[in-house]
Design a protein around this nucleic acid. Structure first.
Lengths: 195, 195
DNA sequence: GAGGTAACCAAGCAAGCGCTAGTGTGAACG
DNA sequence: CGTTCACACTAGCGCTTGCTTGGTTACCTC
C-alpha cells in the first residue's frame, strides 16, 4: 500500500475512480470494475489502496484540496471591492467544480458513504473552504452590497452553485464565468445595475 | 403483488422504505433491512412489490405527486401579483420538501438508481412540476420583478431551495416560510424593499 | 549480481445479495 | 361449510461482493 497520497500512479487511479463513481455511484462501483478501468486485476487494486473506502476518500480529498487552492488564489490575486470579490469567489467555485467535475460530484453526492474517520478529516478541509466564503459574504454584507442573514445567504449561494452540476453543459454557449456573474447580479440588493 | 398504488398497507411500507433509503442510501439498503423495519420477513416483501426497484419508484412517485398537488393549490388559491406568486411557489416548495422530506431526499439523490422505464414515467411528473415554476418565473420576468435568463433563474432558485435539505433543521428557530421569503427577497431585482 | 521494492496476477474465501418456491393461516364471502 | 384471497412464513438458490493469500515479474541500487 502506498502511504504517500502524491504517488503519480495513485493519482491517476484516483482520477479514474472518480469517473466511475460518478457514472455508477460509489456503492454500485465494484472493485472489479475499478480494476478493469485501470487495466489491472481486482486484487492488485489493494496494493494502492487499503480498501474501497480509501479510494473514495482519496477522490474527495483531491477535489476539496483543489477547491481550496483555487479559491485562495482568486482572493489573493483578486480585486478588493466586496462586490468584485463575491464575483471572483463565485467564478472560482464554478472553475473548480467543472475542472475537477468528477471529484466534486463525488464529494457532493457520495459524502455520506465515507467512513466516520475519513469524514472527520475531510470535514476540516470543507470547513476551511466555507470559511473563505463566509469572509467574503461578511464583507459584502458590511458594504451593503447584499442583504440578509450571513448563513442563509451563503447556503443559498452555495446551493445554487453546487446544483449546477446537475444541469450545466460545458459544451453549451454559456461559460462558467457567465453563470457566476449572473448569479451574483441576481442577488445584488437594491441596485438595478446588472447588464 | 398489489397493483393499486393506493393500498394503505403499501403506502405505509413506502413511507418506511423512504426513511431507510435516506438513512442508508438505496444501494446499501437491503431487502432484509426493509423487511425488518416493516416487521415482516424478507420474502414477504415481494408480495407487495415486484422487486426492489419498484419500492424506489413508489417512494419517488409519492413525493413528486404531493409536490404537484401542493404547488397547484398554492397557485390556484393564491395571490395574483407576480412577486407574491413567486413567494407562494417558493413557500409551497419548501412545504412539500419538509412535509415529505424523506421521499424528496430520495427523489433528489437517488433518482439515477431508477430503472429506465420508471425514470421515464416519473420524468413527466417532474416536468409538469417544473413547468409550474417556469410559468411563475416568466410572469415575474415580464413584470420586471426579477431579471435574467428564465432557465438560469429557475435553476438557481430550485438549486438553492433543494439544497436546503442538506442543512436546514426544522427544530431550529427559522420556519420554512421564512426561508422562502428570504430567498425571494434576495433575488428581487433593483428594489431595496426587503424587510 | 545480489538484494530490495513497487507493481501486478491467479485463485479463491466468507459473507451477503436479490429474489423464488412452496406452504400455512385467518378473515371475508357466497 | 367450502372457497377465496391477502398476507405472511421457511428455506434456500445462484450469484456477486470486498478482500486475502502466496507467488511472479521488472526495474533500481550498491
Amino acid at each position: 500500500m502506498n502511504v504517500m497520497n502524491a504517488s503519480p500512479r495513485r493519482k491517476e487511479l484516483t482520477r479514474l475512480a472518480a469517473q466511475l463513481f460518478v457514472q455508477e455511484g460509489f456503492d454500485r462501483t465494484t472493485v472489479r470494475m475499478l480494476a478493469q478501468e485501470m487495466g489491472i486485476k481486482s486484487g492488485s487494486l489493494f496494493h494502492h489502496f487499503r480498501d474501497k473506502q480509501e479510494i473514495l476518500a482519496a477522490v474527495i480529498e483531491e477535489g476539496t484540496q483543489n477547491a481550496l487552492v483555487i479559491a485562495r488564489r482568486a482572493l489573493d490575486n483578486g480585486p478588493s471591492h466586496p462586490e468584485a470579490r463575491l464575483r471572483a469567489m463565485a467564478r472560482a467555485h464554478l472553475e473548480t467544480l467543472f475542472a475537477d467535475r468528477n471529484a466534486h460530484v463525488v464529494a457532493l453526492f457520495e459524502w455520506r458513504r465515507l467512513a466516520p474517520d475519513a469524514s472527520a478529516h475531510l470535514s476540516h478541509l470543507r470547513d476551511a473552504y466555507e470559511a473563505l466564503w463566509l469572509g467574503v459574504i461578511d464583507d459584502a454584507l458590511a458594504a451593503g452590497v447584499i442583504q440578509g442573514d450571513r448563513f442563509l445567504v451563503s447556503r443559498f449561494i452555495l446551493g445554487a452553485l453546487n446544483w449546477t452540476v446537475r444541469w450545466y453543459n460545458p459544451e453549451g454557449p454559456q461559460a462558467p464565468d457567465d453563470l457566476a456573474d449572473e448569479l451574483v447580479a441576481m442577488i445584488m440588493a437594491g441596485r438595478g445595475d446588472q447588464a
